[in-house]
Amino acid sequence: MPEPRRLLDVAIVGLLGMMLVDGLPDYLPGIPTASRWLDPVVDVTGLEQTSWKLFAPDPDHINTWVEAVVTWEDGSTSTWTTPSWRHRTLLQKLMHARWHKAADNLRLDSWRRLRPQLAEYAARQAVPPTPGLAPVHVEIFRHWWLVPPPGRREAARRRFGRLPPLREDFPGTKSIHDKDLRPRARGVQPGGVREEPAP
């Protein structure tokens, strides 16, 4: 029967092994395989590390925000957006902190399975122009601006007037999800465009 301290030593070695395998960079030999094997253990125990890629291997050099355009049953539209990072008080900064990660993930295709849920959430959050209207359609857009390399910084500053530019000025826009929430009223198109009746 091993003495209790030696059992504790075995636990220490196990904890150190979990830390190293789960937390070291994937480019080190053997780490991806070992970490796949260990994954269920660290998840079940709640002792998983996280990716310690803090701005690594290179910082993302993209600014993004996500916008949802909600179409209501009468064809009118409202927008819901992820919070703006500028002009926030310290309190807002702390309260919105998790939106940093959420907005960053929601724009990524690796989280695309969550977009239908995001559409429903945006429809609940958006304020209809007339109270009581039901949402019929949501389209989600990703907007982005790529940080220019240092040699093109001055040109970018002249173009936008400030760096980083205001998010409304971001040049990149792409529709990343389009969802009907319920059958639209006759003639109402996504984005609130009313179809002209046929002559």
Binding site: M19, L20, G23, L24, P25, Y27, L28, Q49, S51, W52, K53, L54, F55, A56, P57, D58, P59, H61
Partner: peptide, 16 residues
Amino acid sequence: FVFLAAGLEKLPGSMW
């Protein structure tokens, strides 16, 4: 370990 792993993750980065 957090500090060291963060440093090791940056080493392959061209911008760093």
